[in-house]
């Protein structure tokens, strides 16, 4: 095994997870804003940011679905050891992880009318993350924001489900940006 599942977690969990969460929260509160999120050293192909999000937010109570080539032994072992989170099918997942090409959005939980929060958060590792490309409008954005989204139509469709829908986090290296269901893209 190249990467030990015992390594790559936080060395000081209370402090590091607090720091990481502030970056994640800022990203979710201000869609399109790129924030730093680091602390974890996960096995490939996970980015530092994606790994950090998982150890900050996931535990026994949250099912994780690994899509496509993220579903490999090293990643599974690392997640199991670091978070204790059960690895589940896409339909039951609270967190879904993969590249844009690997993830099938059609099977994911979008919440219910009474509990729209019971929906999946999709963590998409991108090769590049930059504040240009698609136009983002909505809560958390003063005028407009821009982000290099991997698609438009999928996110447009997701926003029409509001208040149901998926919430996305885009990770690249040690950086994160988010696109909640409340954001309108064009």
């Amino acid at each position: 095994m190249e990467h030990s599942s015992l390594a790559g977690g936080f060395t000081d969990p209370p402090q590091e997870s607090a720091q990481a969460f502030r970056g994640i929260m800022r990203a979710m509160a201000c869609p399109g804003t790129i924030c730093d999120v680091a602390g974890a050293v996960p096995p490939a192909p996970l980015s530092v940011a994606a790994g950090t999000v998982l150890i900050t937010l996931a535990d026994h109570d949250t099912g994780i679905h690994l899509a496509g080539h993220y579903n490999v032994q090293a990643v599974r072992d690392w997640i199991t050891f670091q978070t204790g989170a059960p690895l589940v099918d896409a339909t039951d997942a609270q967190f879904v992880l993969g590249t844009w090409e690997d993830i099938d959005l059609s099977n994911l939980a979008v919440g219910t009318a009474e509990y729209p929060d019971r929906s999946a958060t999709v963590i998409v590792d991108l090769p590049v993350l930059k504040a240009e490309g698609a136009t983002l409008k909505g809560p958390g954005i003063r005028d407009v924001a821009r982000l290099n989204l991997p698609d438009l139509e999928a996110f447009r469709r997701n926003a029409t489900l509001f208040p149901l829908g998926l919430d996305f986090m885009f990770t690249c290296g040690a950086r994160i940006a988010a696109l909640p269901r409340s954001t309108k893209v064009s």
Binding site: S17, A18, F21, I24, M25, M28, A29, T56, L57, A58, D59, D61, T62, Q94, P116, D117, S119, T121, P139, G140, F162, P163, D167, P180, R181, S182
Partner: peptide
């Protein structure tokens, strides 16, 4: 407990 609250905060920001 913090993780549980943090997850709730993120969903609350996603559904203002």
């Amino acid at each position: 407990t913090k993780r549980m609250i943090r997850r709730a905060i993120l969903k609350s920001l996603a559904i203002p």
